[in-house]
Structures are given as C-alpha cells and as structure tokens.
Design a protein around this nucleic acid. Structure first.
Lengths: 202, 202
DNA sequence: ACCATTCTGTAGCAGTCGCTATGGAAAGGA
DNA sequence: TCCTTTCCATAGCGACTGCTACAGAATGGT
C-alpha cells in the first residue's frame, strides 16, 4: 500500500542529515558519553524534535548503528565477496580496515567495536555484541566452507581463525583510536594473516 | 626520616581494602560509568571520607590503576622474564592472558585496555593510552634485541610484531568481556603466535 | 474560513553527577 | 581536663542527565 499523504506541519529539518550527525557523535564518543544536548546541538534541532523523529536515545542509537553498518560497514561484505578465496577476502578485509579505521575527517576505529564499551545500558551492549558475534559466525562459516571445498587445508580450525580475525580487528580499532596510523595498521594486518596455516602448494 | 606519629582521630576504615573495592568497580564498569555513589557504597564509606583519603575521582582512579598493575599485571613481566626466548615469553603472555582475562570471581579482560574507552576525561584516556604504548615499546625492544642476538630471524619486523601482540591482547580482552571462554582464547593466542616468522632450524 | 494534524521552541521535570561546607565525634598531648 | 588535630555523617551545592508538558506555528482537508 502506498504511503498516505503527509498531514499537518511538515518536518523542517533533514532527517537523514540529522541522523548522520548523530552517528558521527556516537561513533566518536560512544553511546553513553554522547548526551542529548550534544546530539541536539550537532543535529541542529531541539530535544522535542529529536524525540518526535527518532524516539528515545536508544532508538536513535539503534538507527545510527543500522545506518553506520549500511554506509561504513559495506566494505566488509565487499572485501569478502570480491576476492577469489576466503583467505584473500579476509586479508583484504583487514587491509581495508586499516584504511577505514584511519580515514581523515571522521572518527577513527569502528563504531560497532567501540561505542558500547563501558556502557551502562545492557541493551546497547548486547546490540553491539550480537553484531560482533554475527561477524565471527560469518567468518567461521566462510572458512569452514573453504576447508570443506579443499580451498583451505584440513588442519584449519575455522572457529579459532574467525575469532583471531575478530580480535585483530578489535585491536586495530582501538589502536587507530590511540593514534596509530594507517601504514602501521596495514603491516599489522599483513602480519596477522601469517597465522593462517600454510597452503598446500601443488 | 621516620613517619611522624599520627595525630587526631584515626581513620576508621581499611584504606587498602577500600582501594581494592574501588579497583574492582573501575575494572568492571570503566572510569566514567563508575559513579562516586557506586564507589562509596562498594568501599563502605561516605563521600567526604573518600575525598579525604584519595583526593578526587581521577586521583582515586590513578591509584587504582597503579594497584591493578602491581597486583594483576605482574604476570606480564613474569611471563616475559621467565621464558628462555622472547617468542616463548610472548606466547606465554598471551596464554596466561587467556587465563587472567577469564578468571571467575572478578571482572573479565584488562582494566588498562578497557576502563578508559569512551571516557570523557582526556587525562584518563591519556593515562591508559600511555601505559598501553609503553607495553608496545617494551615488546618491540625485546623483539629487536632478540633479532640483534640472532635469536629471531633477521626478516623479523619488531615494531609490527609488537603491535600485533598488543592488538591480539586488546581483542582478547574485549572478547573475554563479550563472554568468550578461556579455552577459546587460548586457541586464539596459540594461533596468533603462528604469525611469527619461521625459526631457522639448524 | 475553519479544523485537524503535526511540528517546533520554551521551559522545566525528577534524578544523578562530582564534590564540599559544616558540625560533631574520636583520638593523642599537655 | 582541656586543646588540637583529624575523621566522619548529614546535608546539600550547582551542573548536568534523559526526557516531556505545553503553547504556538505551519501545513492539508473541507
């Protein structure tokens, strides 16, 4: 069914732009350290408009996370999909993360990894933890399939390799926030890939 | 010079025990998510006693961090010192961290790694960042010395290996807080060590 | 024109934050 | 005993937290 025609006074601000501004703040400071006053100022609106458009703070954060994953997380699926092997895909994922985590002009690191740390709201923590766990499960599934197909050697432990990948990503995110630069993170990423078992060279 | 005899009414609580209680709270919730009310309740004292004995919240945290490093961080130096090679030392450091990060009955992960994330106080963030950076520098120095002595092969990149070690520790800390168990972290730690260049077997 | 609907700005709610002024209680020294 | 010193408990400071009641402004429908 089509969207009914809007009634009443139209919204006077750009909802998507406001959400973007909120996302940047959450990304930079984390969920709890970002106050409603911070948000309304960055979004250019007053508190009642924020609550009318986005619900409470947690709903706004959920929407920001969803938008973040769509806009700034797409490179993950792309890296895994566009490379010919899982190993090459994860190598590229780590390499691209070094770039994504240190892009100038926006917060460093990954919102999903950092924004919920030390957060008082169990729901927010759990929301982000579930996303992270989903990534680990995705990695594991892909690696296990590669082992099953003979692409990766049989002694491979898909679960451990998936967790190692996630751990390296988490470490890279925190280090990028600590000021470590792109070049050093790329070296780190390349080094981490040496943990994979040697490929049978035919 | 000897400590002058105490004058006036003696303190009615155990300062060290109170500091321990504060450390546990900071460790579990992080700096900012731990309120003075939380602290006074856990320490069993009132706010004025806390301020008289420890100064402000940041001073208390600094003292908690120092105590944490002394009590719960000693295993790091021990692992590096007691193993015959740097490689074995870092392997044991990672392995022992899997245990330390998941010990039942106390907070998971590492206070130095997590308690300052998303913290509004730049001083607290910087305090912990400097400790982390010091660890990386220590790792790098040890690895570089091992390369110089021929213990590790010349193609080794000490800086990158040091950063990788730190990244894996950070990832292990966050994952332990996400509920990942000791056994899985030990596998992760062992896998990470495969990133080291192969040893010249003579 | 008038109404229903929806948005916006002002102003402020109750609660918590880190922190402290104040007065009484508990100790040692004279 | 009296004084000094130090600690403790009550109570509360101003600022901030997430959030909202209310009234006015702006739109479309009739």
């Amino acid at each position: 069914m089509p969207t009914p025609p809007p009634r009443g006074r139209p919204r006077s601000f750009d909802r998507a732009a406001a959400l973007d501004a909120a996302t940047m703040l959450f990304w930079e400071r984390g969920y709890e350290a970002t106050s409603i006053a911070d948000l309304t100022e960055a979004m250019g609106i007053r508190a009642p408009s924020l609550y009318a458009a986005f619900g409470d703070k947690r709903s706004l954060f959920e929407e920001a996370v969803a938008g973040f994953r769509h806009t700034h997380g797409a490179y993950v699926a792309r890296a895994l999909a566009e490379e010919p092997t899982v190993r090459a895909g994860i190598a590229r994922l780590l390499r691209d993360s070094a770039t994504e985590f240190t892009t100038p002009g926006r917060p460093h690191g990954c919102l999903v990894i950092s924004a919920g740390v030390n957060c008082g709201s169990p729901q927010v923590r759990e929301q982000l933890r579930a996303i992270r766990e989903g990534s680990v499960a995705d990695f594991e599934r892909l690696i296990a399939a590669a082992v099953a197909s003979g692409e990766e050697p049989p002694e491979t432990d898909p679960g451990t390799l998936a967790r190692l990948t996630a751990a390296v990503l988490q470490g890279m995110s925190q280090q990028s926030r600590d000021g470590v630069g792109r070049a050093e993170l790329e070296l780190l990423a390349a080094a981490a890939m040496r943990a994979w078992p040697p490929l049978r060279s035919e």
